[in-house]
Structures are given as structure tokens and as C-alpha cells.
């Protein structure tokens, strides 16, 4: 599993790779949290996130939008997500810790997850996605 930030003039564009669809979702979540809060994130608490959507791309977008919402409203910085996908349903067991200004104010706020250019592709090595975060 890996992700990298690829060049985009105004926003943050992430390219993630993973062997399975579930781990691709986890990795994209990891990218989102890293952009917002940096790399120092601990898994002290657990939290479940459940979303549903019609297609795989919108399921990813719904999932990340929910992560963004919970993170902001509940003040949780997530360190890991164990994702299970069953048809149009997603259930994620999230690990994280309370926002700590000293360690987590290193990133930039993400305003939203965009559909622009969002496509999940599959090849012999697994799954890949390009996704844009508005910052």
C-alpha cells in the first residue's frame, strides 16, 4: 500500500495504490489524515464509520467525506481504518486519538473531496485511484 501527492496547481491530488479495494480505501483515508494533521497520529481510541453509496467511486467519496466530518466535529485524528465493503455498504473500524494542537496542527484543512478526475482502476497489481482534495 502506498500513496503519493501528485502535482496539482490549486489543490491536493493524491494517487494511491493497494492490493485490494478495501486497503485502497484505507490508504486514501491515511492520505487525507496526513494532509490535514501530519504523520504523528496514534491509535488510542476506536470509532466505527458506516456509509452506503451506489458505485465504488461515490462510496469512496462518501467514506472520506464522513471521515472529514467526524474528524472535525468530534476532534479525532485518525491513524488507521480497517475497511469492509459489501456491495454498496461500507463499514470501517477506525483508530485514532483526540486532536492535539502541538502534534496535529502541521497540515492544512481539507474543505471537501472532489469528483473531478476521480476514478478507481484495477490492474494485475491491484487497485489504484487518483483523488482530489480541495484545500
Amino acid at each position: 500500500m502506498s500513496f503519493k501527492e501528485i502535482s496539482h496547481t490549486a489543490d491536493v491530488k493524491i494517487q494511491a495504490r493497494a492490493p485490494t479495494l478495501e486497503s485502497l480505501f484505507s490508504e486514501t483515508c491515511n492520505a487525507l489524515m496526513q494532509v490535514m494533521y501530519g504523520t504523528s497520529r496514534k491509535g488510542l481510541n476506536k470509532r466505527e464509520i458506516v456509509v452506503t453509496s451506489d458505485d465504488t467511486e461515490s462510496l469512496l467519496l462518501e467514506f472520506l467525506s464522513e471521515v472529514l466530518f467526524v474528524s472535525e466535529v468530534e476532534g479525532i485524528v485518525f491513524s488507521a481504518a480497517r475497511v469492509r465493503i459489501n456491495g454498496s455498504n461500507l463499514q470501517a473500524e477506525m483508530e485514532g486519538e483526540p486532536f492535539n494542537k502541538d502534534r496535529h496542527a502541521q497540515g492544512t484543512e481539507v474543505k471537501g473531496i472532489s469528483y473531478s478526475g476521480l476514478s478507481i482502476r484495477q490492474d494485475a497489481n491491484g487497485y489504484m485511484v487518483d483523488i482530489l482534495f480541495d484545500v
Binding site: 496539482h8 496547481t9 490549486a10 489543490d11 472532489s114 469528483y115 473531478s116 478526475g117 482530489l132 480541495d134
Partner: peptide, 9 residues
């Protein structure tokens, strides 16, 4: 004008 999402910026 620059590259955004949806409309250009």
C-alpha cells in the same frame, strides 16, 4: 484562470 474542479478557478 487555473485548474480547479468542476468550473476552472
Amino acid at each position: 484562470i487555473h485548474w480547479g474542479y468542476g468550473f476552472p478557478i
